[in-house]
Computed example of a mutant assay.
Amino acid sequence: MDYTFNSGKLMRTPPRPLGEASSQPDLFHTPSDLGDSDLNVNLKKRKYPVDSTENITRTMNDMVININSMLQDLKANQNEQFSQIRKDMSALKKQNDDLLTSNAEIKKTICVISDEQNALKLRVEKLEQGENKAINYVSDLEQQVESLEWKIRETSVEIRNLPTESSYEKMLDVIKQLHQTLNVTYDQRDIRSVYRLPAKQDGPRTIVLEYAGLQKKSELLQAYKKHNQANKEDRLSTNSVGLLGVKKIIYINGRLTRKAQQLHYQARQLVKDGSYRFCWTARGKVFVKKDEGEPIIEIKTVEQMVALSSETRADD
Rank of each mutant, 00 (worst) to 15 (best):
A119R: 14
S139A: 13
S139Q: 15
Q144V: 04
N136K: 15
A134Q: 10
G130N: 15
R123K: 06
E142M: 07
V112K: 06
V124H: 05
E128K: 07
L141E: 04
E142G: 01
I110V: 11
N132W: 04
E116V: 02
E128T: 05
I113C: 08
E131D: 06
I135P: 00
E116W: 02
L122C: 02
Q117R: 12
L122T: 09
S139I: 02
I113S: 05
L127P: 00
Y137K: 14
R123E: 09
E131V: 08
L127M: 11
G130P: 02
D140Q: 10
K121L: 14
K126Q: 11
C111D: 14
N132H: 10
C111Y: 09
T109N: 06
E128M: 04
A134C: 09
A134H: 06
Q129S: 10
I110S: 02
I113R: 02
V112N: 05
E125W: 00
L141P: 01
T109K: 10
T109M: 11
S139L: 11
E125L: 05
E128L: 09
S114W: 03
E142T: 04
A134K: 13
V124R: 02
T109F: 01
K126G: 10
V124W: 02
E142A: 04
Q129L: 07
Q143R: 13
C111L: 13
S139M: 14
L141M: 08
E116C: 04
I110D: 00
V138P: 00
Q143G: 13
S114Q: 06
L141F: 04
S139R: 11
K126I: 10
S139E: 07
T109C: 03
K126P: 01
N132F: 09
L127F: 02
L141T: 03
T109I: 09
K126V: 11
L127H: 02
A119L: 12
K121Q: 14
N136C: 11
V124I: 12
G130R: 15
D115R: 02
A119V: 05
I113Y: 03
N136V: 11
Y137P: 00
L141W: 05
N118D: 09
N132K: 13
S114G: 10
D115G: 03
T109W: 01
L141V: 09
Q129I: 02
G130Y: 05
L120N: 08
K133Q: 14
E125C: 00
K126W: 01
A134R: 13
N118V: 03
D140M: 10
C111Q: 12
G130M: 12
N118I: 01
D115P: 00
E125Q: 08
Q129Y: 07
A119D: 11
G130T: 12
I110E: 08
E131I: 13
